[in-house]
């Protein structure tokens, strides 16, 4: 079985090498960096050890706090709406065969567009003075809204863009899952006299749960990393109303050139994500066990 061992290592090695070289090593660097303050004097980087002060500062950082809060709100609201809308659309349209190819092509389109373009388009469409949305509102006799400049509306406006961007994707995945459900169960349920609502509640939802979870996780991961769209849409403003974590990190780390502090908030974000995954894993394992 020597051959087996050889191939076992050879097949896994490329992935491990990539991960170690490009994620573990930088992450360790980042960790070390997070306990330092870096200054440049006469072209030489001076690393000053500052203990935990970068971490304590992070908890007082209003941008970082707002960013963390908004990111969670953004991800949870956007992804939930996408899932619900996608699911409703899938329920409504299951069984449509005419124009299938056309619809699939159309619904795949949005994921092909770079976020930076999406940000630019929607910024123009949201524009107070000449945006197509306000023009339509005025045409319909409503008063124009300051979609991106009003602190109470800005985050919602950004979320709408994300919903536009990703609902079609959720819809396609959920539709495929729905179509793969065994139809004879529904026949049996109908003969038993259960209402369509009961069928949905007690048959469709439980059977769809794995697909729903997978789609949800897939989207959640991308939503927590949101950057490009916010970048062009609002730049985090007005105030801190659309500040998101990757944006705060970018700004603190690079724009303000505070690598030590930027590293600390990166590590905090990283740790929070790791804990989240660990807890979610625990819960799902316990549920499986029971």
């Amino acid at each position: 079985m020597k051959n087996d061992t050889f191939w076992r290592y050879t097949t896994l090695m490329p992935a491990v090498l990539l991960f170690v070289a490009l994620t573990v090593v930088p992450m360790v660097n980042l960790f070390v960096l997070s306990f330092h303050h870096v200054e440049w004097i006469e072209r030489i980087a001076i690393w000053k050890s500052v203990g935990w002060s970068n971490y304590t500062a992070a908890f007082e950082d209003n941008l970082f706090r707002a960013g963390a809060f908004n990111t969670v709100v953004f991800a949870v609201v956007a992804v939930t709406v996408q899932m619900v809308l996608g699911f409703i659309l899938a329920l409504l349209t299951i069984g449509v065969t005419r124009g299938r190819t056309f619809y699939r092509t159309v619904f795949l389109l949005p994921i092909l567009v770079p976020g930076i373009i999406i940000g630019a388009i929607w910024k123009l469409m949201y524009s107070y003075d000449f945006g197509v949305i306000n023009k339509t509102a005025i045409f319909l006799g409503m008063s124009p809204q300051d979609w991106l400049g009003n602190p109470n509306l800005a985050l919602a406006s950004v979320i709408v863009v994300d919903i536009w961007h990703w609902t079609p994707f959720c819809f396609l995945l959920l539709l495929a899952a729905l179509e793969s459900l065994p139809q004879d169960i529904y026949e049996a349920a109908r003969i038993d006299g259960s209402s369509p609502w009961q069928a949905l509640r007690f048959i469709t939802l439980p059977l769809m749960l794995p697909a729903i979870i997978v789609t949800f996780v897939f989207r959640m991961i991308l939503a927590l990393k949101v950057f490009d769209e916010v970048y062009l849409l609002t730049g985090g403003g007005p105030g801190t109303s659309t500040e998101v974590v990757s944006f705060t990190i970018y700004r603190r780390f690079f724009t303000e050139d505070r690598p030590g502090y930027g590293a600390a908030i990166s590590i905090i974000t990283f740790a929070a994500v790791a804990i989240l995954i660990f807890v979610a894993g625990r819960i799902s394992r316990r549920r499986k066990a029971s």
Binding site: S127, Y128, D129, G149, P238, G239
Partner: peptide
Amino acid sequence: GHPSTAGQTQTNVIQNMATGQ
């Protein structure tokens, strides 16, 4: 001023001028 001063970037301001607003 503009009703959305807090939401205006330089791009918006230039657009306001360019479109005669």
